[in-house]
Design a protein around this nucleic acid. Structure first.
Lengths: 160, 160
DNA sequence: CCTTGACCTCAAGTTTACTTGAGGTTCTAC
DNA sequence: GTAGAACCTCAAGTAAACTTGAGGTCAAGG
């Protein structure tokens, strides 16, 4: 009984397993076909070819592309994304735990970015108050009260 | 008595008024000389030339460059920065109020960016919880519960 | 005076993340 | 079996924000 199923059901399962074409992946993932070509060339995703040299994708690629997009939105460059993705197992389909690791890693970076921007906004608030961005007294100009003798005003800001 | 001053004092005032060379501006502003050339070509800063065709800058340029850097850190492209700077009065040296307007404008954009990133982080948190980034159920994949019929999953995210 | 460091211009190169185009092949549906 | 959509490769283009390089001028100190 458990091994029996309707031919309808079989069809659906076959459909679910069917590999995807670039066009399908592009549409479902919301990216251009050329982007998928590009990601493949950059080693971010993989595919195999059918007899006519056309790309075929496992459904997993959809999640991968989604992850790439999310990571990008957090401001992470593709290079780093590729490195992070490289930590995923190649043999088996990545598990929940695998994806969790990536999420956690990026969450940290995202938090850092948010904090940096928030600090900047607070300082900008102060500067609205004082109307300044003054060369001598503005925290945006002179973080940590270094009075720019070394002429590193703006640069120090970037580092912080 | 009020009109008298030592020659030392006079020297200092003269020094303070003295226009700056590119090299000086570069060092004090913490940017490369080539960057200043570039900013000038882009209409972000201005200078005049001495008899030997070398650039000379008013001290005000230091504040301008600082403002540019701050704006950039909030993620605003040079194009927009140029437009914002163009609202400053050309005749007189910008006042506190003038700079305030810019700060306020950018503060808004900065806040928006922070909020966007924070939302993203919250969603990522959810996804760490569910370990997913699942095609069907993850808010990062399907914002606003649109189930991607239109295949606009990831793209919609960008817009939001 | 003369050297040396600071400047000058203009063109071209760099990085990131893709897109566009040309020229040609494959697939699908009628 | 044929039209038209979808696919292929490879080179080149794009945008942002600068940097680098070549070839030449200017200025300040000894």
């Amino acid at each position: 009984m458990a091994t029996k199923m309707s031919s309808e059901m079989e069809k659906k399962m076959a459909e679910f397993r069917r590999p995807l074409t670039v066009g399908e992946v592009a549409e479902r993932a919301g990216v251009a076909v050329s982007t998928l070509h590009f990601y493949e060339a950059e080693g971010l995703i993989t595919s195999w070819r059918n007899s006519g040299n056309q790309r075929r994708y496992a459904r997993e690629v959809l999640r991968r592309v989604a992850v790439i997009k999310v990571a990008q939105r957090t401001g992470i460059p593709l290079k780093e994304i590729r490195e992070a993705l490289a930590t995923l197992p190649e043999k088996r389909t990545p598990t929940t735990a695998d994806w969790k690791k990536l999420s956690a890693r990026w969450r940290g970076q995202l938090t850092e970015r948010i904090e940096r921007l928030t600090r900047l906004r607070d300082q900008l608030d102060g500067c609205i108050g004082c109307g300044c961005l003054s060369v001598d007294s503005c925290p945006l100009r002179n973080p940590g009260d270094r009075l720019g003798r070394e002429g590193a005003g703006a640069r120090l800001l970037e580092v912080q």
